[in-house]
Nucleic acid binder design. Sequence first.
DNA 1: AAGTGGTCTAGACCACTAG
DNA 2: TAGTGGTCTAGACCACTTC
Lengths: 254, 254
Amino acid sequence: MTAPPTRADPALLRPGRPLYEEVRAHLTEGIAAGRWKAGEAIPSEAGLAAHFGVAIGTIRKAVDSLVAQGALVRRQGKGTFVTAHDGRRLMFHFFHVVGEDGAKAYPEVRTVSFERARADAAEAAALAIARDERVVRIRNVLALAGEPVIVDDLTLPSALFPGLTERIFTARDNTIYHLFQSRYGINVLRTDERLRATLAAGAIGALLRVPAGSPLLEVRRVALTFRDRPVELRVSHVNTARHAYHNTFGKGDA
Amino acid sequence: MTAPPTRADPALLRPGRPLYEEVRAHLTEGIAAGRWKAGEAIPSEAGLAAHFGVAIGTIRKAVDSLVAQGALVRRQGKGTFVTAHDGRRLMFHFFHVVGEDGAKAYPEVRTVSFERARADAAEAAALAIARDERVVRIRNVLALAGEPVIVDDLTLPSALFPGLTERIFTARDNTIYHLFQSRYGINVLRTDERLRATLAAGAIGALLRVPAGSPLLEVRRVALTFRDRPVELRVSHVNTARHAYHNTFGKGDA
DNA sequence: AAGTGGTCTAGACCACTAG
DNA sequence: TAGTGGTCTAGACCACTTC
């Protein structure tokens, strides 16, 4: 007695692809649009099943994929929540510099410059915006155990961060990506990085207190939100004399 | 009328953790032990369900996790197969050097030295073997578009690669990890990497044809198989003047 | 006790591959 | 046509959280 599938709202789901993908797309849309904000719960699985008119198992499959993507987290007995980048999460998900022994540590961040400008060609290409669009450029020095180890140069499209001032930026009480999320509703989901070895020179060398010609690791990172939309360009220079950039490929253990 | 769960072979599954984890562990064990070799099909889902005495959905959940881990691949209508590292798979899963434009290319590999030795302290620690255990050290130069770009120094525990000779190593017609798999039944599932910037010197600089003092990217990689057992230490030096190391964090798009 | 996610079952039907 | 994986349903029961 397999009942014919009835939709609570047939218009919600159009055929052609699996139902769970449709559901997933709707949930993604809701999160990206800020309908459920970071840290908030989405409706219960039973509620979603009723709303979309599908079985709970189908909802679970859609939610599973968003959990795997990092957009949602489940908490048994409580609900399913939009991933919040507060505290440690982002730090240990996207910050990859470790000590020689492999130990992770929290960096202390100091902002040394904050200015408005127009995107140059490289920035425009990386951020998928037009040349000469307004951007904010920020330079931070990150110290580990009191020693400056990283110089970060951020470029942010002003259009995505309206009203961002140095005061707001430096007054944040948490990670930068948490600021993106809590104030601007931007959820960083992925990063794309290019690494190269360079030589210390000029201001960066001075900030890191290394002689010119010292080797530095350059990391060029683009942070992406839903639909692979770029939201931040970050060029880091890392003194790897006493630290390393840590990286792992392939999931799970077993 | 929920029938009491009956096991075809109750001894196969002990309680205490979810059934799908038990099933997964059994499958993992079978693959790691070489019961199903790379490229071969495991039993059908229906067959596994009958064998373990569980529902097909439970089998699917176990297989799902192994697919996510990269140990198995599904092919609709054909079966589920142990991942084979032949051809492109490993290449683009674990080889991360790209051109300035982001284009990937196949490297040409040339072996410049092959010798037997005893593990030094660093190698022993990385490979979780005793000091002075027998190892094989291999140095390769990888060229992209005819230009030498990478020097790879591999250290392999001899115990895992019995009878490995330079002739066998250089006569392979595929990637190195494919050789591991096809000849020694070793499936590389994960890698753990530490990156730093260094300066060219000595033989490595000469092989890469760069002047002493040029910046090089150093990648120290440990390749792991099931149960996070280390099987290879690889220290790479990359000339990033015209290439970059590419890296992506966070899964999926949407 | 009520509500949430987590596991597991049993079966229907679809989509793809092979002989 | 038979066998495989892929989607989906409907419901039971468990584990955890909150009131």
